[in-house]
Amino acid sequence: MNKIIVYCERDDINTLRNVSYELLSKARSLKNEAKRLIKDYDIEIEAISIGASLDEDCIKKAYASGADKFTFIKDDSLNDFCQTIYSRVFVEYFNTSPSDIILFPATVKGRILAPRITTLLNTGLVADCIELEIILKDDDIKLASTRPTFGAQLMATIISKSSPQCATVRENVFKAEFDFNNCGKYFEYLPCRYEETRMKIIKTVQNKICNDVDFSSAKIIFAGGYGLYDGTSNYYEKLKKIAENTCSKYGATRKVVDFNLAPSNLQIGQTGVSVEPELYVAFGISGAIQHIMGMKNSKKIIAVNTDSNAQIFQYSDYKIVADAREIIDELYDLVL
C-alpha cells in the first residue's frame, strides 16, 4: 500500500494548526507528481491526529485539503501533549497500518515529537524542510526533502534509504488549498493507555511583555543591529526616536537584545517576531539567518552595513555600504 501520513498538530482549543492543511495540500501535489512519474501509481493520504476530542470542522477541512482518510488516536488521557506518550501511541497505531512517508510540522512540538517517533521506528528524519519533491530513483518513488543548512548559506536535498521516509516541514511554506467536494473516511483508534510520571508542567506563563508591540500594523520598521553599538545605547535610542517621529516601529536583532541594548519584545527574527512591513530598514545588521527569517518577506528592504559582503544585502532591494551610525545622525536631523 502506497501511503503518505500527515501528522496534524492539535492546539489547545481542539482545532488543527493551519500547517496541517498546508502539508495535506502538499501531500496531494506529491501524489499527483507520483502519478505522472509512474502510470497508475496511487498514493493514499492519511491525516493522523492525537487527543481527547477534536472539532468536526477540522476533519472536513482536512478532507478538503487532501486527506483520503482521517485517523484520530483518541483517549481522555491524551488531551495534553506529552512527547513520550504521543510517540508511543503513534508508533502503536503506525505498526497496524504503516506508510512509506510521514510528514510532521516543524513546530516546537513537532520537532520534539518527530525524532522520538523515527527513533522508535529506526528510520531517518530530515529536519525543518522548505521543499518536498517526489523523484524516481532506481525505478522507485522517493521523497526528496530540501532544507537550509550552515546558517541557510547552503541548501541540501536529502533522501532516506530507510522506510518510512520522514521529514519535519516548516510552517507557512506551502499554501493550504481547499476543495470541499473532496470526501474522506473517518476512523478512531483507541490505543493502550500509557502514563508519564517522570515529568510534569508545574506552571505556564504567557509572557505578555513579548506581545505588546504591534509590528503587524507598521508600514515601516527600523531595525538596529550590533553594528550600531559604540559602547553606549545612544544609536538605539536615536533610531527609536526616528521611528516615533515617522509613525514607524523600531525593532532589534537578537544580539542587541542579548546584550541588553533593547528589550526582548523588540526582537525580530525566528525566535522573536516575524514582520512584513512595506519598508524595512536594517541598520548595522549583518544578516544572521535567525534575523533574515523574521524579516525577509518585507515588501521593500533597505540595508546599511560597512561590510559590502554582509549576508543581509542578499535579501535587500537597496544596498548601502556605509557606517549606519552616520546615516542615523543625518536622518535624525531630517525627521526631527
Binding site: 526528496a144 541548501m155 541540501a156 536529502i158 535579501y315 535587500s316
Partner: peptide
C-alpha cells in the same frame, strides 16, 4: 538512513540596487 542527494547555494533572487551617495536623503 539519510544522505545528501544534492547540495546547492541558494540564489539571490533579489535585484539589489546599490545606492552610492546621499544615503540619508534617499532613505
Amino acid at each position: 538512513p539519510t544522505r545528501v542527494y544534492r547540495a546547492f547555494r541558494p540564489e539571490n533572487k533579489k535585484n539589489t540596487a546599490e545606492i552610492s551617495s546621499d544615503f540619508a536623503k534617499f532613505m
